[in-house]
């Protein structure tokens, strides 16, 4: 006689623990949250205080280009009428900020560190519902490509700032100080960070189906891909160095520290 049994219920193994991981999985998100937190607090403070961002010929990357009429004398362009006391940084800071906020690496870092989505792999997240990046506001992350283009413009401006740093305080060319090196390194790191961007990788060649038909773009893509593998490292180093550059100029401008002049 054939014996008929019900098919087993299709259900998952019921394991109540949020995770069975025994390693210190909470460390990496905690470290990232700390450093991201410090950077965000410092950068917010530094762009809101509205002082000590210019020590001729050095300008802080947070305030460059300085477009408002209220900018420190000789620091910028005085194009946009502006309320005294309100920081001119907000005219421009959305560019680099939006670029980093929508960056694929930072997304990973803050989704994990701040939103616990997930805090670490194979650790249950605390949210009842999840829609990822399919709805407003997170669907706006798809604008990253545009922030990449904006970031390129900022990189050009900050590179020009580094070139202008080959002057002395009086505007004479052919001089160099420690501050010049700081601005050059800062611009260089920002270029490396931006060029290693995933959107950059897509537009240089990633979008193609036939690399063999576009040898030059294939070369560019290969180069960007190599940088792209270091994108996380470049994201952190360039972020840290932007903070350092601002702090350096801030201290020089406040007279705490004298910018050593080489020649």
């Amino acid at each position: 006689m054939t014996q008929v049994t019900d098919a087993p219920a299709r259900s998952r193994a019921q394991i109540a623990a949020k995770t069975l991981r025994k390693d210190q999985w909470w460390r990496q998100p905690a470290v990232n949250a700390t450093f991201l937190g410090i950077a965000v607090i410092y950068l917010t403070w530094a762009s809101l205080v509205n002082n000590h961002y210019y020590a001729a010929p050095l300008i802080s990357p947070l305030y460059s280009p300085c477009l408002a009429t209220t900018c420190t004398a000789h620091a910028g362009f005085s194009w946009i009428p502006w309320v005294a006391g309100l920081t001119p940084a907000i005219l421009i800071i959305w560019g680099p900020m939006g670029f980093r906020f929508t960056c694929y690496y930072y997304r990973k870092a803050y989704y994990r560190a701040f939103w616990q989505s997930p805090g670490a792999c194979a650790v249950r997240e605390p949210h009842a519902k999840y829609t990822g990046e399919t709805r407003f506001p997170l669907i706006l992350q798809n604008a990253h490509r545009y922030f990449f283009y904006v970031a390129i413009i900022f990189n050009l401006i900050l590179t020009a700032d580094a070139v202008f740093a080959f002057r002395n305080a009086g505007g004479g060319w052919g001089h160099m100080s420690l501050g010049t090196i700081v601005l050059i390194v800062n611009a260089g790191l920002l270029w490396l960070y931006s060029l290693s961007c995933h959107a950059c990788r897509h537009v240089t060649g990633g979008r193609l189906k036939h690399f063999s038909k576009h040898p030059l773009r294939y070369k560019a893509w290969t180069f960007v891909s190599r940088l792209n593998a270091q994108h996380m490292q470049l994201a952190w180093i360039s972020l840290g160095f932007v903070c350092f550059t601002d702090l350096y100029i801030r201290l020089v401008s406040a007279g705490v520290f004298h910018n050593p002049q080489f020649f």
Partner: peptide, 15 residues
Amino acid sequence: FGLGMCNITKCCTEV
């Protein structure tokens, strides 16, 4: 296929 739900947190790559 729900690509928008992936939030690129890289656990797939990790394992």
